[in-house]
Amino acid sequence: MERDLEQLNSALNSIKTLRSNVRRVFESVSNGLRADHGDEGKENKYILELQELLTTVNNDLRDVENSVANLTPPPGAFSLGSTTSLSQETTHERQALYGQLVNSYKWTDKIHEYSALAGNILSTNSFNKTYKTFSTTKRRKTQTSNHNVPSDVIENLITSINKLFPDVTITTNRPFVPNPVIQASLGRVLKASIAFKGLMIEWVVVKAHAESNDLWTESRYKVFKKVTENCHAAMCHFHSPMMPDLAVRSFMHWFHSYNILFSAPCKRCGNHLHNNLPPTWRDLRTLEPYHEECK
């Protein structure tokens, strides 16, 4: 790349010299005999001068040919189809369009390239801990939509979760028919308002039992604000469009591990408090308690 640029530079330079020397030839021809040629043998002097100039031009031309021969031709031009006619646009304000078009084409091309690279790297270093299988052979019966599912499907899911954990009590209300908002209270520790969008978890707010069930105000306690934040992270982590019911189940399983929010010490440092907060993070796979700073 570097070498290509250098060669291109030198080729351009030699063209420049060639042009300036050709100009000098024409200058000399147009001026004809001048006073500084003197009186004696002025024709001879003039012819000599012209010959000299023509030789330099000849040399320069050879240089140009050499340097051009060294250049590597670019690997195929951008084929932008009929958009090339944009460059022929005569209206002044539209002339810039073509340049912008080419630039954005280059951008998308780069993005394509980088994303392909990133995809390769990420697929070899998978850090996703839920087990998703995208193979076409084992694909389960695909649901047509996760947003718009019959309400009895959601109802079944919620009741099955309710049965799964004895210390989680769930009350449901449905401000909008297919999208329930459930209040899951976890023992005497905390309660969470979880809003569903079809089969997917849309929003989670964790609060103390004494606080209101409002979905839009956060808890007044720092520890529950932190838990809410972590719940959002887990909600995104467990999200799986292919198997939404599994995602909800995994999330609730993880959420259930907060039943020892105040009583369990951090797995890493062994203390209860760090920054005056108990361990608010739960490992996504092992469900072990950690402080935010210790995880």
Partner: peptide
Amino acid sequence: PCVVPAMCWDLLKEF
């Protein structure tokens, strides 16, 4: 944030 003494006694003791 906590309302049951048994759950947060260790935490309070540490504090």
